[in-house]
Amino acid sequence: MDSDIANPVHGKIQAEIDTNDVVLFMKGTPVFPQCGFSAMVVQILNHLEIPFKGIDVLADSSIREGIKEFTNWPTIPQLYVKGEFVGGCDIIREMYENNELKDHVTTKGIAPKS
């Protein structure tokens, strides 16, 4: 059975990552992150001037659980670029420290905030 049919939230998640270049499923909002890991990713994205849409999983528990199933990834935050899951806090920080994140985003055709 197709898991998307089983879990309608997957459709909602898919729509968000299809219609927004960079999406961060996080706890809290970009302006008021509610968790250190989410805050770290927001800080990295802002520092690199990467425009993104923040989705507060605390505001919708179905997304908070559905997103973990959607990617087979047990924690929040989760970053998506052009519909592809890039990583959680550890991987985003490691990519940032290795100067890979900006390249990853620009090669996907996403321009930094002007």
Binding site: F37, N72, P74, T75, V86, G87, D90, I91
Partner: peptide, 27 residues
Amino acid sequence: SRVEQHQMVYGALQGRMGGVLHALALQ
């Protein structure tokens, strides 16, 4: 990929990640 590598470790932890184990900074 890093995502796949981390998923292998999370799989080894058999569902504890994000549950009883709140934070595991993984490399």
